[in-house]
Design a protein around this nucleic acid. Structure first.
Lengths: 106, 106, 106, 106
DNA sequence: ACTGAAGGCTGCCCGC
DNA sequence: GCGGGCAGCCTTCAGT
């Protein structure tokens, strides 16, 4: 099948097959977005509930963030180290190079 | 049971109950956030698919936004844009846009 | 392997010279980035000022975007939007927008 | 002087004073954006120059990032610690509470 | 030309 | 109701 046959920019039967496809995509997206929004509301609700149980939602949010971040942060540390190594590797092969690196970072 | 006994902000000698509650809330939230994230990825996927079918995702996104917008709200925005444009002495694009569309379908 | 030539790409056994060069480049870049950032803040400030004068910054931003856009490019976008909207069976907003503008000036 | 006299939403002499103000804002913004863009190009140019001198621009970019981040990262560490303290402070007043906290983070 | 990543910007949610 | 803080989106840029 030739690609041009159903390309929106080239097909000429507007409202035809491309229209059906488009509608399907739009519908799916809107459906998914609605579900996503709904989940967002559920989350809000849980926070609200937690608040009703006496928890400070602000702290709660921080806990969520922390639990999410900690592993990533460790990875980032490693990345940083690796980056340093790589950057230094460019210049640090000789004593003079080392000095140059040192001054570059001063 | 008195509420104060296990309220984080107030009670104190309560035992691990607050911890259990907290853990439950955290778990529920994390679960919901994960689902939400997953939906976000699904949406991206649909856009990608649409792109593969020859649709312009940028336009597609605009379509979604337009359909989502309250008509009155949208009219108001456009009015303001036209107003500002007029104040700047640049007559709005709309007539040209219309003409372009018209010619596209002629 | 000879890595002793510490010039990153070609190597010239020059000593700390690469370091000096590197430092110069880094400095220039950082300087430029700082200025750039500063300009970004200035821009924000102008928007803020405009807001203080009663302008709707959201609209203002759109105005800037519109003025920046190549007219042809812009017409094309609008055409596509209309096209997609038509394919979806929803006639575009443009006529309504126009009517709204008209009444605003009547 | 009443503020309403020159509010875009209420003033009615389009093309009048509000128009002048608007034009001034737009002009300033566009000017600043242009300068900003120009700086962006300068930066690119420096990278290009560095590349011509044999430096690996990828590494160079990393160096810039690192120099920018290191201080911030320290600050972030402190923020994290502080967050933990705060979160723990909510529950850690008693031995049992400590246990609860522990399980919450497990 | 497309994909993936980084930074900037926008909209949303909160507290004041 | 407003402004600040934060998450998500969009845009830009290097790499393939």
């Amino acid at each position: 099948m030739r690609k041009a046959d159903h390309q929106p920019g080239e097909g000429h039967n507007s409202g035809g097959f491309a229209g059906e496809q488009l509608h399907a995509f739009v519908t799916r997206i809107e459906q998914l977005e609605e579900e996503k929004k709904s989940l967002g509301e559920d989350i809000k609700e849980v926070y609200s509930e937690a608040k009703g149980s006496g928890f400070d939602t602000k702290i709660l949010r921080k806990i969520i963030v922390l639990r999410k971040m900690d592993p990533g942060e460790r990875a980032e540390q490693e990345t940083l180290i690796e980056l340093y190594m790589t950057a230094l590797g460019q210049l640090s092969d000789t004593p003079l190079g080392k000095a140059a690196v040192k001054s570059a970072f001063a």
